[in-house]
Design a protein around this nucleic acid. Structure first.
Length: 144
DNA sequence: GTTCTAACA
DNA sequence: TGTTAGAA
């Protein structure tokens, strides 16, 4: 994979967080973080014995998602499963949207239209994502 | 002051 | 899971 310097100002994957920061950010106690690690639900970055744990951005997000599912009432084991699934789906969705997204048009204070490009190679129709008063929907528009 | 491990109301 | 103890 070739580097694309201008695409991202920072490489967020290189950010590291201490256990205290992760706890403050996600609302998960340090006690829980150590326990989850012991249960192999999460893992800290390469650490020596007794050294402070450090977490990657990826792990931080995973922890935040686990917490999200816990608050929804799921058990820890299930919350972890769901977080793992999200982690697997996220890059797929992100890459797809990134490759399809053309532009976003703000048509009014509470209406925006996302242009997802052509439906196919015939290039006769556009796929539009509509956000109107918080409600979302898709729309196929003929090329004008 | 923060984090670590281990133990326990 | 929270809290506490003693060490790093």
């Amino acid at each position: 994979m070739l580097e694309t310097p201008m695409s991202n100002m920072f490489d967020t994957d290189k950010l590291i967080f201490g256990i205290g920061q992760v706890s403050k950010i996600t609302g998960v106690s340090s006690r829980q973080l150590r326990y989850w690690e012991q249960q192999n639900y999460i893992s800290a970055i390469q650490q020596k014995k007794g050294a402070s744990r450090q977490y990657s951005m990826h792990t931080l997000i995973k922890i935040a998602n686990i917490q999200r599912f816990l608050r929804k009432g799921f058990t820890l084991a299930v919350a972890v499963e769901k977080a793992v699934k999200v982690a697997r789906e996220s890059p797929i969705i992100r890459d797809f949207v990134k490759s399809q997204l053309n532009e976003v048009r703000f048509e009014s204070d509470d209406r925006a239209v996302i242009d997802f490009g052509f439906t196919d190679d015939s290039k006769k129709q556009h796929v539009l994502g509509i956000i109107d008063h918080g409600k979302t929907s898709f729309k196929i528009e003929d090329e004008s």
